[in-house]
Each structure stands twice: as structure tokens, then as C-alpha cells.
Amino acid sequence: METIVDAQNLRKTYRRSDGPDIEAVKGVDLSIRRGEIFSLLGPNGAGKTTTISMISGLVSPTEGDAVIGGHSITKQPMAAKRLMGFVPQEIALYPELSARQNLLFFGRMYGLGGRKLSRRVDDLLAFLELHERRNDRIDTFSGGMKRRVNIAAGLLHKPQLIYMDEPTVGIDPQSRRRILDTVKQLRDEDGMTVLYTTHLMEEAQELSDRVGIMDHGEIIAMGTHAELTQQVGEEDRLEFTVSGGVADGAPARIQREVAGVTRVLYDAPEQAGAESVEPAAARLTVFARHGRTALPPIIQVLDSAGLVIQSVAVREPDLEAVFLALTGRELRD
């Protein structure tokens, strides 16, 4: 399949006069195929936005380059930018203008005009179910509606490639659903390539053809959902919240005595305040080949260790598990 984005050794270092330099992105190599949805998944601060900003020409890389449809973003930025649409994480619209006025303005900036632009704006507003509010000022819109206009502004010129930086942040589930469906439609019906960043594992899992997992400025894993989950094997993940003191020996006993358990991670409880009467809760994550079979003996071990189980969840292999397996931390940490 043809490659539309080819980023090599992208690196961004922010120089600081009042402290050590910050290496936000540490040499990212990235290849995105035409017509796919590629997600960059990682916790906040992983370097996703900086990476996408370098690829979209918003930030100059300290090192490396990205080639978009055959045009270098550092050497031929105008040609590269013509191929892209950009949907930033923030609502990058003029709040004093209506939805239609905003879209007409950005459309003109892409060189569109006249009836063609007017029709395109109306089509997009209808596509995003905003036609009835087209003449209302943006600052009167809900968060979800603003997000949809924000997306429309990046789609005006029917770009071959669209960047979406956490487009569902801070909105209600209904609006989020609508945006996710829109993203899939862009790929399935318009053949657009989507570069999508998110810190939500469910979004990446649902949308993406391929996922790059980022942490601390590096891509630590990349591939399809199946390829990535294979990295952690076919293990289920059993998550326990327990209280009753420090589980001395319990993790080791589970790994030793319960069949199918491959690994146990134990997050010690945070120190409770002196005035607190509630025992502090700890988190225990158990990786097992057959989670549902392993669950009863694990509960027995915890009971015998004097720990009180507050909650239990059994999860099948997913990107969260991949991230956990690779970093020892959960995505939300």
C-alpha cells in the first residue's frame, strides 16, 4: 500500500534558559499508508501533539523530517500543507463569528471561493448535523458542536490526509460517538488518510487500522491491534482493588500457586492520612492465560492473606494491556 506520511528521526528539543532542555520527541520514525486510520496512543505528555505538530508543519523539528505525499514538510511546506487538513486539540475557531462564517473564511484560505465553497460549507454542516445552527455564533455552541465545526474546518478542501489531535477531549458521549463515526466515514467513504492522536485506548482500538503507542517521546510499539496484542500473548488481565494492609507475599503466592498466571503487578496503596479511618486501597494486576479459570484460586489466596477484595475486573487482551506490559504503567497514570 502507498505511503502518504514518511517521518524519519523526528526529534524536538525545547531549549530552556532556566533549566535543563526538554526532549519532547526523541527520534520518531513513522510510516502511514494511504487510506488508513493511524492512531498515536499514549498518556498525556507522551509527545503525541508535538509529533503531529511537526508533521503538520506547525512546529519545526530539531532533527529529522517528514515527507507528506512526496513533499518534505521542512523543505516544501506549502506543497505538503496543501495535502493536509488539520484539526487541533483546541477549538481553533473565531468565537465571534458564526459556524458558516468560520468555515467560509478557512475555505477561502485554502483557495476555495464562490458557489463551490458555499456548497461545500453547507454540505459539511449538514454532514456534521449542524445545518440548523449554521448562522449562530460559535461562542453559543456546546462543546460537542464546537468540536464538530473544528473538524469541518479541517475538511473544507477535501484533503488527502487529515490530522486530528484528540478531537473528542471534553465532550459528552453522544458527541463523541458522532465524531468517531465521522472519522470512520472519512476513511470508508472519502478514502481519506487519518492521523489520529488519543490517550483513550477504546478510541484507538475502535478506529484504527494501525496504532503507534507513544511514551516519553518515543514510539514504543506500532502495528495493527492484533499485532500489538500478540506482543503480550493471549493473556487476560485480572484487575483487583484490595484493602487490608500490605499484601506481603500474596503476589508471589498467586504467581506460584495459581495455574496459568504469568505475571503479577502490585501497586502499593498510597499512604492514608492520619485522620483517615478507611484502609487504603491497593491495585493488583494479574496476567493469566485463562483469566476466568484462574479467578477463583486467586480470590482464595487473597482471602487467606487477609486482604479484602473491593472490586474485580477481567479484561481480554487490549491496547491497555500492551501499554501496561511495555511500560509497567497504565495509560491513565
Partner: peptide, 11 residues
């Protein structure tokens, strides 16, 4: 409000 950045992402 990021409109300056959006302008910068334009050609």
C-alpha cells in the same frame, strides 16, 4: 484560541 496556529497549518 489557536486560530493563529490554524493559520500556520494552512499553506
Amino acid at each position: 484560541q489557536w486560530t493563529l496556529q490554524r493559520l500556520m497549518a494552512l499553506p
